[in-house]
């Protein structure tokens, strides 16, 4: 994600250049927004098909961006294009997305409580140092990549859109077609897995 002091100004310049069909603008937009679009696509379809869908969406965008009115941000607009295309495909193929939203705790964490509801195996270490300090450890960063790759697709997409792309809850619910309460469960389950991963890494140095 590009961080700058005037993101809206830069975005409107980018949009205007995209409307004019400037190659450089598309190169910049593809490099900035493809990651999020892939996260959306992978929520709905197999990873193998996700890239093709995102490619098709970019081709669509070449023409569609001329009608972009800026009612939402460019990122949200692009993510919705991907979501809509995926939903249309699912409607024709009748593929269903099944998820268990009833359990809020990961089994591995659940087993760390006594029947009384108190901790049997509480967290041993505090690792709430700044995230930057933790990420300076390249091995931890690699481990995070690996574990993100192993998350169920729906949790991974929710986490990436909410955390890495900083979408608001409403937008994530709209793009992924989930209720607010189910989004809460997906985010919480995914975060617990990352927490358990960091804990193991801090304690043992192993991923």
């Amino acid at each position: 994600m590009t961080v700058n002091a005037h993101p809206n100004l830069d975005e409107s310049r980018l949009v205007e250049a995209l409307k004019r069909g400037e190659q450089a603008a598309f190169t910049e937009a593809v490099s900035t927004y493809t990651a999020g679009m892939l996260a959306v696509a992978r929520y709905y379809v197999d990873p193998a098909n996700a890239e093709e869908i995102v490619q098709d969406c970019w081709v669509t965008v070449i023409d569609a961006v001329r009608r972009f009115e800026g009612r939402s941000g460019l990122k949200t607009w692009l993510h919705r294009i991907v979501a809509n295309r995926c939903k249309n495909l699912l409607r024709t193929s009748h593929r269903e997305i099944t998820t268990d939203f009833t359990e809020r705790l990961e089994p591995e964490l659940e087993s760390r409580f006594k029947t009384s509801g108190r901790w049997a195996t509480p967290p041993k270490l505090r690792f709430d140092e700044s995230a930057d300090v933790l990420l300076e450890n390249g091995a931890l960063s690699d481990c995070l990549d690996k574990h993100l790759g192993h998350l169920p697709e729906n949790q991974r997409s929710a986490l990436i859109l909410y955390e890495a792309h900083q979408h608001k809850s409403d937008d994530v619910c709209n793009i992924l077609d989930v209720s607010a309460s189910n989004l809460r469960v997906m985010l919480h389950r995914a975060r617990q897995k990352i927490f358990l991963m960091v804990e193991t890494f801090q304690e043992t140095g192993e991923c």
Binding site: L135, L148, I194
Partner: peptide, 11 residues
């Protein structure tokens, strides 16, 4: 802290 890791990470 685990959550914030993701914000700074090229996840």
């Amino acid at each position: 802290a685990s959550t914030e890791l993701l914000r700074g990470h090229s996840s």
